[in-house]
Design a protein around this nucleic acid. Structure first.
Lengths: 172, 172
DNA sequence: ACACTTGTGTCCAATTATTTGACACTTTAG
DNA sequence: CTAAAGTGTCAAATAATTGGACACAAGTGT
């Protein structure tokens, strides 16, 4: 059980139960919330490894705006916890917007249990990856240098370091 | 015309023409390819600011595998050029997979001209953003430290720096 | 309750990096 | 062609990083 706590947020009790059963075997703890109102405090208290968030809350409002708002709010406050969205209304635009707003993944109802587990595991694994500082630096330097067509003076300027330092960094 | 060259790849000549007309007013140059075979060399030669890639090439094969393959190939070779995907088959799974494979955005046919232009501009703008080195470092340090629950020894270890250095970095 | 391990805050001296300024030489653009 | 901008390289001054050390706090298992 290397995968810790999961927080599931959905306004449908039946789905909450079904998901809980589905995930119980893989995750140490499955916490459920039937509304996102208490999400921020619950997350702060429980520090879940991932969040599964339903996009349709207020009955009759299925545009997903509701869920999108909560996604943004949670992601802004806890940018390191992966959030997987789940929705009954398979809408490409919605999915794209969600991912661009920081969602780790996007699954549609009815879901496949194994797929849901895999997606959550993947999200947690990816969120747990840590890059050494010098590697991060090297990659970023390379990218910026690229964007400046190799102009070291400008690249150094944009990076906020001196030209000679950049020169040394790329030499090694 | 701050937005440079665009490369459009689609096997349908009619769509190629339509897109070309649509984008001509906004971008300096619109290059078209009717098959992705020559994409890699064309990109290397023309260095476009963005790429608009259709997902369905071989006639009758509409699963998008084709386009996904090319997306990966192009993105691996030119990770700094944003790739916007376009497809007639609005499939959420496909869209999600595309974004997770490095696509900058995903639009469906029939497209809205203004939206297409906006999406491409956004992709180019976002790809052009450059973060100073020290800001990148500070953010990453904070994130790793977070993931280690404040354990500085482990965080320093994972970051590949000494404990004292990390101590200094967070102090300032 | 006890020893044991792990981590913290802090210092030092030795080693490395970074910066600033300079100089002769290419490239580039008007 | 000339002026402006960039490159490669050096040196000396300054700042950052490291490894080692030490007393002390917190948590582990027995």
């Amino acid at each position: 059980m290397k995968y810790g706590t999961i927080l599931v947020i959905d306004d449908n009790p039946a789905i909450l139960t079904a998901v809980k059963i589905c995930l119980a075997g893989t995750f140490e703890r499955v916490i459920t919330l039937n509304s996102p109102e208490k999400a921020l405090v619950t997350i702060a208290q429980e520090n879940p490894a991932a969040i599964l968030l339903d996009m349709n809350f207020s009955l009759g409002v299925n545009s997903g705006q509701e869920g999108m708002m909560w996604l943004s709010a949670i992601h802004r406050k806890f940018p390191d916890i992966p959030i997987v969205l789940i929705t009954a209304y398979a809408d490409v635009k919605l999915a794209v917007r969600a991912l661009k707003n920081g969602a780790a993944d996007f699954v549609t109802k009815p879901w496949d249990n194994d797929e849901l587990i895999r997606v959550l595991k993947d999200a947690i694994d990816k969120a747990g990856e840590i890059i050494p500082l010098d590697q991060l630096e090297t990659e970023h330097v390379r990218k910026v240098l690229n964007k400046c067509d190799g102009n070291m003076k400008r690249a150094a300027d944009l990076l906020g370091i001196s030209r000679q330092t950049l020169y040394n960094k790329v030499k090694n």
